[in-house]
Design a protein around this nucleic acid. Structure first.
Lengths: 148, 148
DNA sequence: TATTGTTATACTCTATAACTATA
DNA sequence: TATAGTTATAGAGTATAACAATA
């Protein structure tokens, strides 16, 4: 990929800036998760499982925005690595009850720390107040997207 | 794609918010350019050509971040639609001198207006000061990414 | 019949490498 | 030899549709 680009003609377009900044953040964070053999979305899955366990695969798919058919492979990776425990639902044997394993909980803490370090590094050009304001504005937009 | 997701566990991660907002903005803007039979990046290409014509294909590739091999197809689309004029460079016949055609200039004005409308709609949850601040913060990050 | 999870597959996007024509 | 542009192709990512097991 062409990493360095110069396109001042696009700097007036908020949408282009959004995409450029988002892609750069995603790509550098990918390197971090790849060092653990994982995809950035695995970090999101671990966060959601931690917050809501036990959770079914379909529920996790809905919460993370990952398509159910794609969720299978992602979850398999977590399972094979021993980061989650999959147990068939007792009341409904079609579903899984997914929980973090001890190893999953440990890796999640490592990833949380590395994600925070990545955030600090990536947002370093902004001072603390600006970083907080950026987060607040993005959260406001995200929440308005979530509204029905 | 799963359009609606609920993942409060991810709301603390600036990177996830960035990606979510960026993707939503890109997808909705794609609908606008698709109505003209174009890709969002075509709008970026037209903006850069307008600002810097005549420009070579490789120069445009560097400025827009589109890979040279991918640039071919994108440029072909603009050419077939009669939106640009491609002329072989006089001093170096390997290169093209790419300029906007009159039709290209007209469509660019339409797209500028539609992009501005899209921006206003998308950022509507923020007040004017917040919209300006978001742009400023993203620009600051972008410019720091561009630095060597 | 409907739903959870799975598989197979197709489609998009993009990058890599090999090629041509010019320099 | 090197560079601008082109083509063919391979890889990653993701969605669609059909299926098995269970409800």
């Amino acid at each position: 990929m062409v990493k360095s680009t110069r396109h001042p003609a696009l700097f007036g377009q908020t949408g282009f800036l959004l995409k450029k900044v988002s892609t750069a953040s995603f790509d550098t964070f990918s390197d971090i998760t790849a060092a653990h053999g994982l995809h950035p979305m695995h970090f999101g899955m671990l966060l959601i499982i931690d917050a809501e366990e036990p959770v079914s695969q379909l529920e996790l798919s809905r919460r993370s925005g990952v398509d159910p058919s794609s969720m299978v492979g992602r979850m398999d990776a977590l399972d094979e690595r021993g980061l989650v425990v999959r147990k068939r639902g007792e009341r409904d044997r079609r579903t899984y009850e997914i929980r973090l394993s001890d190893a999953g909980r440990e890796l999640l803490e490592v990833l949380r720390r590395e994600a925070e370090e990545h955030r600090e590094r990536f947002l370093a050009p902004l001072d603390a107040a600006e970083q907080a304001e950026l987060h607040r504005l993005l959260l406001k937009l995200t929440q308005s997207l979530e509204e029905p």
